[in-house]
Simulated assay, not measured.
Amino acid sequence: MLAVVLCAVGGVLLGGAWSLRSQGAGRPAIVVVALLGVLALAGGVLWMLPHGTFS
Rank of each mutant, 00 (worst) to 15 (best):
H51F: 11
L20T: 02
G24P: 08
L2Y: 13
S19F: 08
G26R: 13
P28D: 02
G37S: 09
R27C: 02
V4Y: 05
V9E: 03
L36W: 06
R21A: 13
G37V: 02
L13C: 05
M1V: 14
Q23N: 10
A42E: 05
S55H: 03
L2I: 13
G15H: 08
V33S: 04
L46G: 01
L46Y: 08
A25R: 07
G37T: 00
V5F: 14
L14W: 06
M48S: 08
L35N: 11
L36N: 06
A8M: 14
V9K: 06
G26V: 13
V31E: 08
V45G: 13
L20Y: 09
A40V: 14
W47A: 14
A8P: 05
L49E: 14
G24N: 01
G16F: 03
V45P: 03
L41R: 01
L46H: 05
L14V: 09
A25K: 01
G52T: 07
M48C: 07
S22E: 11
L6F: 00
P28Q: 11
W47C: 05
R21P: 00
G16L: 14
T53G: 01
A25H: 06
L13R: 02
L41G: 06
F54K: 00
A40S: 15
G52N: 00
A8S: 09
S22Y: 10
S22Q: 15
V45F: 15
V12Y: 11
A25D: 05
G52M: 03
G24R: 00
A3T: 04
V38G: 08
G11P: 01
G10N: 09
F54E: 04
L2W: 02
S55D: 04
A34G: 12
M1F: 10
V45M: 15
V31W: 10
W18V: 04
S19G: 05
S19M: 13
G43Q: 08
A17V: 09
L41P: 05
V45Y: 14
L2E: 09
V4I: 15
A17N: 07
V4L: 10
V38A: 15
G16K: 09
V4A: 12
L49H: 08
V9H: 02
G44T: 03
V32T: 15
M1H: 13
P50V: 11
A25Q: 01
G26S: 14
G15S: 09
A3K: 03
G24L: 00
G37I: 01
G15T: 09
S19V: 08
A34R: 09
G16N: 14
L46A: 11
G26P: 08
V4Q: 06
C7V: 06
V33C: 10
P50D: 03
G16D: 14
V5Q: 13
L20P: 02
G43Y: 06
L35K: 13
V32I: 15
V5P: 01
V31Y: 04
G11I: 13
L2H: 06
A8K: 12
S22W: 07
M1T: 13
S19P: 00
